[in-house]
Every structure is written in structure tokens, then in C-alpha cells.
Design a protein around this nucleic acid. Structure first.
Lengths: 106, 106
DNA sequence: CTGATCGTTCAACTATTATGGAACTATGCC
DNA sequence: GGCATAGTTCCATAATAGTTGAACGATCAG
């Protein structure tokens, strides 16, 4: 089975609120989630605008978001696409994402 | 001015979203916030139901919530009342508190 | 004033999280 | 196959957060 590059993702039904809140409580992760709200990005494009961050650091943040169930990370050819799990989050925690994405605060 | 036992509270307008999310991302703090949604409590009543926690530990959690702007802590005679800053939070982050208090997740 | 009570702050320790270099895996191109 | 690319994982280190006993401050009762 060659294409076994899939990473584990929690089921929508089992998402834990405190884990989601924690994942979103970091400014750089929150900024990324806001960008992902406008559409999927490949991992390289998840770099904070302007500054460069080591790949391992970025990967760690993506992992935190993924394990909390905030983003999905799927291989696509040689790269990976990161996308917001908007429907899953809306299903399980209605209104939360909208509130977090809504204009205010950093 | 004798009754100067007031603790510092951030202004409603300056609340930082990531700080609020972080304060809510701890299960015991979130559980407390849910209880506070039903009305103010004195500090001693903020103990987790069942287990006893040292006063200093409880005080530390209250501080995290207070400094994020989630709760207000006001002296009242010999004790203190802890209350949810619901209006301030709703003003600044509309829908957030409702989403977090809403049934789902732990 | 003395003592008791309520709760915060301080200081020390532990545990969790963040960071980043190096090694590794998988894919695609030649 | 050989090599470059994309990104994760591993490991070590630094930084941050949680936990707790003890000291402290304020208030109230007698």
C-alpha cells in the first residue's frame, strides 16, 4: 500500500472543546486559521506572512491544530493541503468558529 | 482609603482573544466558567465539585481567568465574589461565550 | 487588641509546550 | 537508479504554565 502518507485525524463527533480552544489560543495558529478560512493552503503557504519559520516548527503547529480537529492535512502528490474543518466544527460547536473568525481581537 | 483590596481587571475594549481562548482551554477553568454562567460565586464556592484543591491553586486559576478578562473578582466584606464578565465578552467577541457555554464538548 | 477566617502572593518545583536542527520518508522528475 | 522537493518525526533545549506550602494582608467577632 504505497500511498500511506495519511496522518491521523480525530472524528468530528469526538472533538474536545478545550483542545480546540487551546489550539486556537496561540496567535500564530489563530492567524493561520483565519487565512485557512478563505480556502485551503499547501503547507509551505502556511508560513506566517513575512517571517520565515523552520519547517519543523510550522509542522508542529499544524499538528496541534490537526490533533485538535481544527484542520485537515491531506497528501496531494508531493505536497500536502491544509484545510479548515469548518463543517465538523460547526456541527459540534455551533457558532464557535464564526465567533473566533469574526473581526475582533487578535 | 481602607477597602483597597481591588485586583486589576483589563478593560472590556482591550480584551485579547487568544488570552480568552487560553483561559478557557483548561477543563477545570471551563467547568468553573460554566457554573459562573448561572450566577456569581464566592471564591470558596469555586472549588471543583467533589475534589478539594489548595487555595493557592484555585487562586491561580482565578487569576488566569481574571487577567484574560473572563471573570471579575470583587471584594465584598471578608470574602470575594467571582462573576462572569458576560456583557463585556459579548460586546467584544459576539457569540463566543454562547458557543463555549453551549452544550457540547468538555 | 487578639484571634480566626478568607483569599492573594511568593517561591520552589514539576510538567507541559514551543523551538529548531538533523535525520528520515515519500513523491516526482530525469 | 539518482537526485531534488515537500514535509514529518526525532531529539534536545528553552520557555511557559500548573501545583503547592508558607507567608502575608484585610476584615470581622469578641
Amino acid at each position: 500500500m504505497p500511498g500511506a502518507r495519511d496522518l491521523p485525524h480525530p472524528d468530528a463527533a469526538t472533538l474536545v472543546l478545550t483542545d480546540v480552544l487551546f489550539a486556537l489560543s496561540d496567535p500564530s495558529r489563530l492567524a493561520l486559521v483565519r487565512r485557512l478560512a478563505q480556502g485551503p493552503l499547501e503547507v509551505a503557504a502556511c508560513q506566517p506572512t513575512g517571517g520565515e519559520v523552520p519547517k519543523s516548527t510550522l509542522s508542529h503547529h499544524l499538528r496541534t491544530l490537526r490533533e485538535a480537529g481544527v484542520v485537515r492535512n491531506v497528501p496531494e502528490g508531493r505536497q500536502r493541503y491544509v484545510s479548515l474543518r469548518r463543517e465538523d466544527l460547526d456541527d459540534r460547536f455551533p457558532g464557535l468558529l464564526d465567533a473566533v473568525l469574526g473581526g475582533n481581537g487578535e
